[in-house]
């Protein structure tokens, strides 16, 4: 099995705020060199990795995970080097005051989001400032900040990948790079098992904004698409989805939805059941909130399924997943690809 912690740390350390997914080259080249024959970036920005078929007669299977993450962008430089920002994607504003950030300007800089001291706060003590009203403290003079940080600079959460108990890890950008890790682990297993078909890994961009995935899929036109994204795990105080109780550690969650491909998904669930893969099933009748909403309708249509890794604290710098769940997702996906390819699952 691939070293999941190592892959997670390689993939989550660079800049990959939606639309600014350019800080990942080193990790991407590592993945290309280790597992694939080629890597290219298509015009809308997604990265396509291809491992050519070693034998004829296999379907073309694409695994998609998005490589962008939520973040911020600088909109104005203020006195004393403070920055105004706006959000990219749906930020959780509860975690922002006094949070550490990385500013990807002409240099990579540290910053801290301003937390207004109590004597300057007015009104309700529980109300949170909107992102547009927040500032980042760069500790620089205005002149230096203007020189190093052009308006439009992306800003990301700053974090330290941390191990928790029971093979859980905590960090940022697991939405959705932890699913890329699962996909890479699945592909490593298929390679080790001598799988002969073509394998396409799509690390798509801008999922948090505009789901640019469709551009890449149009060109690739795979026979099957397996989309993997994170899903919100059940946590205490969570009554909104009281019936949806998948928690971190339960294994992958398979989404059953009228807009992905019900028959394809049911085949996947049957496969998981028959072969004893740990999983849960979640019905999301008309929307999955992921790339799997869009891929089925690309080109002549693509049979698509969605398999999710349960995650806590989505869109924060303290996202939590279980590496056991990631490993189980990888094993399930690898087994199913072999089944699709007509190879018997060992």
């Amino acid at each position: 099995m691939a070293d999941l912690f190592d892959l997670a740390s390689r993939l989550t350390c660079g800049c990959s705020v939606s639309g600014f997914e350019h800080g990942q080259e080193e990790a991407l080249e590592y993945i290309r060199d280790k597992y694939f024959d080629e890597m290219r970036r298509e015009p809308a920005g997604s990265y396509v990795f291809v491992r050519h078929a070693k034998k004829p007669g296999y379907p073309r299977i694409m695994f998609d995970a998005h490589m962008d993450e939520v973040g911020m962008m600088v909109t104005q430089i203020l006195d004393d080097g403070f920055l105004r920002i706006t959000s990219i994607g749906g930020l959780d504003t509860r975690i922002l005051p006094a949070a550490d950030v990385t500013i990807y300007g002409k240099e990579t800089l540290y910053g801290v989001i301003v937390s207004t001291p109590p004597h300057l706060q007015s009104g309700d003590a529980m109300s949170l400032p909107k992102v547009d009203d927040l500032m980042i403290d760069t500790g620089l003079s205005k002149e230096k900040a203007e020189e190093l940080i052009p308006v439009g600079t992306p800003v990301s959460y700053r974090f330290k990948l941390t191990r928790l108990q029971n093979n859980c890890i905590c960090g940022k950008g697991f939405d959705d790079k932890i699913c890329a890790v699962a996909g890479i682990a699945a592909i490593e297993q298929l390679i080790n098992d001598g799988y002969g078909g073509e394998l396409i890994l799509l690390l798509s961009t801008k999922e948090e904004i505009s789901r640019a995935v469709v551009a890449a899929v149009y060109e690739l036109q795979p026979d099957y698409a397996i989309v993997s994204d994170v899903c919100c795990a059940w946590v205490p105080e969570c009554d909104k989805d009281a019936k949806r109780k998948t928690t971190v550690g339960d294994g992958p969650e398979i989404s059953l939805s009228a807009i992905t491909d019900v028959r394809f998904t049911k085949r996947f669930i049957e496969f998981a059941k028959k072969n004893g893969y740990r999983h849960t099933v979640c019905v999301e009748a008309t929307s999955t909130g992921t790339n799997a909403n869009d891929i089925p309708l690309v080109g002549l249509g693509v049979p698509t399924l969605l398999v999710s890794v349960p995650l806590k604290n989505m869109h924060t710098y303290s996202e939590v997943v279980s590496l056991d769940d990631v490993a189980d997702t990888a094993a399930l996906v690898a087994g199913f690809i072999k089944e699709l390819g007509g190879e018997h699952n060992g």
Partner: peptide, 12 residues
């Protein structure tokens, strides 16, 4: 040991 303060995700 490491831990973190959490609550419901924004989606929840």
């Amino acid at each position: 040991i490491s831990g973190l303060i959490a609550s419901k995700a924004i989606h929840q």
